[in-house]
Amino acid sequence: MLDKEGIAKRIAKEIKDGYYVNLGIGIPTLVANYIPEGIDVVLQSENGLLGMGPFPFEGEEDADMINAGKQTITILPGSAVFDSAMSFGMIRAKKVNLTILGAMEVSENGDIANWKIPGKMVKGMGGAMDLVASAENIIVAMQHVNKAGESKLLPECSLPLTGVHCVKKIVTELAVLDVLPEGGFKLLERAPGVSVEEIRNATAGKLIIEGDIPEMILI
């Protein structure tokens, strides 16, 4: 079973040289720490930056330089700053190659719910609806089951949706799965020490298992 860092490490293997990548808040942010050497990527922050760098050293924070999570950050050589309309313009026009975000639920046809829980204070969708509606390559990083032990990979989402038919791949503490265009979670890899049976028991939606399922190889 993977911890959060492990999920981030596994997702980092999906990043290809030359990609522009948008990382959501939470586990996706950790992915930046595991981008393999020799892979050249540019991180997009939807508040208006391409070329996001690491957190600043203590004492070097700049109130005018933050990421979409409102954290102080740095900019790398070759960065570009732009306004919010252009930022979502490049997202809508599919210039951003890969979007990695968290989710509360994903359905077997690729619907995602990650912004609202009925009865709880709703904070808003931020840029999530724009990202999932436009991105061609979306990886969801999340726990396979919620705190109550219920599967988050479902036949249909029960929570209000963020977007429909958009998730292509899911990485959890248990497994890597593709969401097939015709519907269903196709099991690709098991986390170290996790059996197919455990994954089956944790997946409420349609799970497709073909042949031997290899254990994932982490960097």
Binding site: S84, F88, M125, D130, P160, L161, G163
Partner: peptide, 28 residues
């Protein structure tokens, strides 16, 4: 949605009455 918010501002500044966006399709 954040992109819708930004682009509705942009449309006003560009003299366009409306925009078309995929953000929010299939949602409330």
């Amino acid at each position: 949605p954040q992109g819708t918010l930004a682009t509705r501002c942009m449309a006003a500044g560009y003299g366009m009455p409306a925009i078309f966006t995929p953000a929010g399709i299939g949602t409330e």
